[in-house]
Amino acid sequence: MAVLVIAEHDNQVLKTSTLNTITAAQKINNEVHLIILGKDIQTLSDTSKSIHLISKVLKCDNEKLENFLPEILAPIIVKTALSYSHVIAPASTFGKNLLPRISALLDTTQVSDIIGIENENTFIRPIYAGNAISHVQTNQEINLLTIRPSSFEKCENSGGEATLEEIPFIDSEAKTHFVSKEVSKSDRPELGSARIVVSGGRGLENSDNFKLLYDLADKLNAAVGASRAAVDSGYIGNEYQVGQTGKMVAPELYIAVGISGAIQHLAGMKESKVIVAINKDLEAPIFNVADYGLSSDLFQAIPEIIKELDLLNQIDS
C-alpha cells in the first residue's frame, strides 16, 4: 500500500518541511501520495504535481480549511488514511497539532519525531531531549508517523508527473475559531532549513543587541535562532527558539553566540554539521559540542567577524 504525506503549506506554497517528509516517505515505499487541505489551493495543487517522487496529489479545497484547525482537518484525513499503510506528517507545530487527533480517531499509536527509518516498521527517534536514541517497531494496520524535517533531505520540487484527485470536504462542527496569526516577517532564510544559523542567548543581554546578530546573519545569508533563555527574557520572539521545546535544526554551520548550552538547547542543534561557540565563559557546556570554540566577549567578536567576512568578500571579488 502507498504512503500518504500530509502537506504543510500556507495555501500558496508548500513549506520545506513537506519536501523533507516526502523524502522520508520514499524510504518506506516507492509509491507516495500527497494530501493537501486548504483554501483556494488550485495553483498549489497544480504545482505540487511536479514534485519528484509523488505519484498522486489529493486535494481538498474549502474555505473552512483556511487556517488548518486540526478539528476540521483530522476527520477528512482519517477517511482517506484508511487505504494507506503509513500516514506521515512533519514534526512541526502543524504536524504535532494534527497527527495525534488522527491517532485518536483511528485508535492507532503514533510514532513522533522520527530521525531515521530502518525499514517500513522500524524507526529511530530521540527521547530525553536527544540524550538517548530509541529504536521502535510498530506493526499496526495504519502507521502514523511524524518525522523531524532536519533529519531528512528535501526532495526535488520538479520532474514529477503526479495525477490530481479531489477528495470531498467533510464538515465538522468546529467550536474553535481562528482569530489571528502574528507572523514575523523576515527576508532571511527559514530557520528550519537554512544552511547557516546564527543563534543568540542570554549573553546578548537585551533585544537591541540582537541587532549585532542580525548583521552577522545577513552577512552570511543565515537564519537567526535563539536559546530559550533569550526568548523567555523577551529579547526575541518564540518562533526563533531552538531546542527541545522549540525548533530542531541541523544546518551546515551553527554559530552559537552567548549561549551556555543547556541540554535542552543542545537537543535542538547538536546534529548541525559544524558548530561554532562564542562565549566569555570557558566552562560553558556549549564548548563540549563545538567544533570551533572562541572564548571571547561577543560584543567585540561579532563586529570583528563581520569585518573579517567583508575582507574575505573583497579578496574573493
Partner: peptide, 22 residues
Amino acid sequence: KIKTLKVIDPPTRKAGVMVKDV
C-alpha cells in the same frame, strides 16, 4: 502497540578545538 527494540546512547561529537581569535 509500539515495541521498543533498543535504547542507545546518541553518537558523541568528537572534541573540537579552541581558536585564539576571530
